[in-house]
Every structure is written in structure tokens, then in C-alpha cells.
């Protein structure tokens, strides 16, 4: 009964159980962190604004994004994925979310940043509804843990408007 294989099996099972338990505890410990991130985004310039040949509106923006996401980091955080999305309604669509910029924050030291960029991904509508359109800019973040449950949240910034004419 107590052969070598039997003992090896028992040892393996025990260590895997302990490891699984430690992973679970690390993941649970994330719940004790109550983060308070801040962010501010300015649209500095509408670089160009046009209707593409296929009829969809496209706009190019210059943005100033500053944020402080340091409080998201815990000892179980591998990285924070952060992205800025334009969100708006059109007559056809109840919700449009178009990601304009994203970034990976590898550590707490890099989690306080201010950048000045043109949109990394194309801001294209499904149709031609962007003239004079009110939209929100939402900073989303997804916390990727070293192990366990992933967390996500966002800050909605409203009051942005596109110009009434193409340029």
C-alpha cells in the first residue's frame, strides 16, 4: 500500500492542493483593495474629418490623456490594460464603442502618465452620423492578475462634441 509511487502521488496531490489554495487566496486578497483612479482627457484638435468613399464618417483627433491609476496595483497585479474609447449613440445603434488608444501599464511606477497623441486606432462610424455628434470619452481599465480573477472598471468623461461640418 505504501509503495514509492503511492507516497509520491500523495506528496504531489498535497503540494498541488496547497498551491491552488495559495492562488485562490492571492486572488481573494485583491478584493480588499478599493482603488480611486483619476483621469482627464482633452481633445486638442480635430486633424481632419471626412466621409470615406464607402459612406462611413471618419475623424482624426489629437488627444491629451492624463491619468493616475497607481491605486489599481496590488501585489497580485501583473499589468493593467488601459484604453480610451469614444462612446456615442446613433439612430441605428443604441451603443457605439470605438477604441481610440490603448496601452499596457506594467508596473505602479508607470501608472501615472500624461500623453499627447493622435488616435492610435481609426475612429470610423458605422454610417454617416458623426457631424455635430455629442460623445463620451471613457477610460477603461482591465486589471490582469498574476493569478485569479480579472477586474475591470471605467471613468466616463462626457461633454465632447464633433464639428458640424467636414474639414
Amino acid at each position: 500500500m505504501h509503495s514509492f509511487l503511492y507516497r509520491a502521488n500523495a506528496l504531489l496531490t498535497f503540494s498541488i492542493t496547497i498551491l491552488a489554495l495559495m492562488c485562490a487566496m492571492a486572488s481573494v486578497s485583491d478584493n480588499f483593495n478599493s482603488p480611486s483612479p483619476t483621469s482627464e482627457v482633452q481633445v486638442l484638435n480635430i486633424n481632419w474629418f471626412q466621409k470615406k468613399p464607402d459612406g462611413d464618417d471618419e475623424v482624426s483627433l489629437t488627444l491629451n490623456i492624463s491619468a493616475n491609476l497607481q491605486s489599481l496595483f496590488t501585489w497580485n497585479t501583473k499589468q493593467v490594460f488601459v484604453f480610451l474609447a469614444a462612446e456615442y449613440k446613433t439612430p441605428k445603434n443604441a451603443l457605439n464603442q470605438v477604441s481610440l488608444w490603448d496601452g499596457i501599464i506594467p508596473s505602479k511606477e508607470h501608472a501615472k502618465f500624461g500623453i499627447h497623441i493622435t488616435n492610435k486606432y481609426r475612429f470610423i462610424d458605422q454610417g454617416s452620423n458623426l457631424r455635430g455628434k455629442d460623445f463620451n470619452l471613457t477610460l477603461h481599465w482591465h486589471v490582469m492578475p498574476k493569478t485569479g480573477k480579472m477586474f475591470a472598471d471605467k471613468i466616463v468623461m462626457s461633454g465632447y462634441r464633433l464639428p458640424k461640418a467636414y474639414r
Binding site: F83, K92, N93, A94, L95, N96, Q97, Y121
Partner: peptide
């Protein structure tokens, strides 16, 4: 992969 764009219809709720 990660979702970077969502367009959700008003009437049917279908998504692109």
C-alpha cells in the same frame, strides 16, 4: 483576443 469596437443595434440588440 480583446474587443476594441462594439456597435449594438437599437431595435434587435445585435452586435458588431
Amino acid at each position: 483576443h480583446r474587443v476594441i469596437q462594439v456597435h449594438e443595434r437599437k431595435d434587435t440588440g445585435e452586435v458588431d
